[in-house]
Each structure stands twice: as C-alpha cells, then as structure tokens.
C-alpha cells in the first residue's frame, strides 16, 4: 500500500488516488511553429526512468485536486509531494 501525502489533505491511502503520468512532459508552446519531433515527444515518448520520477497524481476520491509526487519507481519510496505549480 502506498501512502501519499496530498498537499491539500495530508496523508491518505493509495485507494483514494488516480495516477496521471510523467509530470516533466511539457506541452509545446502555443503560437509557435511546432516540429513533428516536438509533438512526438509530447504525446508519445517517455523517459520512464528506473529511479526518481516526478509524476502527476489526482486525489480523485478526496479533494479532486491534481498534484505532483516525487517517487522512486524501483522502491516506491515517496520523497516529496508538491502542488502543481511548484517545482522540485
């Protein structure tokens, strides 16, 4: 069981959350020429590291806020959780 600290509600069990994927992926900027490679990287390509991973989670059965989790993909240890606008 993962225990995840929602930045808004505190520590809750994994059952209350939904996963949202890699939080380091940035959408290409608007009003600018975007290459196929940039779209490809945004939509499909992922680093999927073994080790530290910054990712989105959704407190779907709680406050319904999105936030970021810094977690180890090999040990499942959670280092830190942040609000969506916060950087590591």
């Amino acid at each position: 069981m993962l225990f995840i600290k929602c930045p808004y509600c505190g520590i809750r069990s994994q059952n209350e959350f939904a996963y949202g994927g890699d939080a380091t992926v940035k959408r290409p900027e608007l009003n600018k020429e975007i290459s196929d490679k940039e779209w490809d990287d945004f939509v499909y390509n992922r680093k999927s590291p073994r080790g530290k991973h910054l990712e989105f989670w959704h407190h779907i059965s709680g406050c319904r806020q999105w936030f970021k989790v810094h977690r180890d993909t090999a040990t499942h240890e959670i280092f830190k959780t942040l609000k969506p606008h916060e950087e590591l």
Binding site: S13, Q14, Y19, D22, S48, H53, T73, H76
Partner: peptide
C-alpha cells in the same frame, strides 16, 4: 498497478 514501476512486486489494493 497503474503507476510507473520497476519493482517486480505489487501492492495489495
């Protein structure tokens, strides 16, 4: 389990 993982072991939920 629904989140990126290399753990080769899962969680109970």
């Amino acid at each position: 389990d629904g989140y990126n993982s290399y753990a080769q072991r899962g969680n109970l939920p």
